[in-house]
Amino acid sequence: MTTTLSQGPAREPATARRIAAEQADLERLQLEHVRERLLRAGAAAGDDPAAVDAAFREAVAAFAGAPVRAFVPVLVERAVREQLWGARRPGRT
């Protein structure tokens, strides 16, 4: 099969969109895992799940415009743990 120059660029945007969609799906999955960990840690610390969830949503919103997305889940988890528990951080469960 021969590929011409006109075929190459037509495929690139579709490939880039697919990759971006896959990365967004992965980030959503990672964030859901972070949320679950935080809710478990909050329950272990006796915190209201609504407060933990609100802090999680606030942190996610704070990173919404971040140009580099790879570390957003880690940064969200750290931000929530620091906001809610500071020095009395409950262990990861």
Rank of each mutant, 00 (worst) to 15 (best):
A41Y: 01
V34H: 08
L84D: 01
L38C: 11
A24N: 05
A20E: 13
L39F: 05
E32F: 08
A59S: 12
A62I: 03
L38H: 09
P90L: 04
P49L: 09
Q7V: 04
F56E: 07
A16R: 05
P13R: 00
D48H: 13
A10V: 05
A41D: 01
V60S: 08
A61R: 08
L84T: 00
A55E: 13
A24M: 07
V68M: 06
L38R: 02
R18D: 11
A16M: 11
A66G: 05
Q83S: 15
Q83K: 15
R88P: 07
A51L: 14
T3K: 07
T15C: 06
L39W: 01
A66Q: 07
Q7R: 02
L84Y: 03
S6D: 15
Q30C: 11
Q30K: 03
A61M: 04
L29M: 13
Q7F: 04
A55K: 04
R28P: 02
V34S: 08
A24I: 03
A41N: 01
G91I: 03
A43C: 00
R92M: 13
L31G: 00
A64I: 00
R78T: 12
L26T: 14
F71C: 03
Q30V: 01
D53I: 03
F56N: 04
A59N: 05
R78S: 14
R69H: 09
P49H: 09
R88V: 11
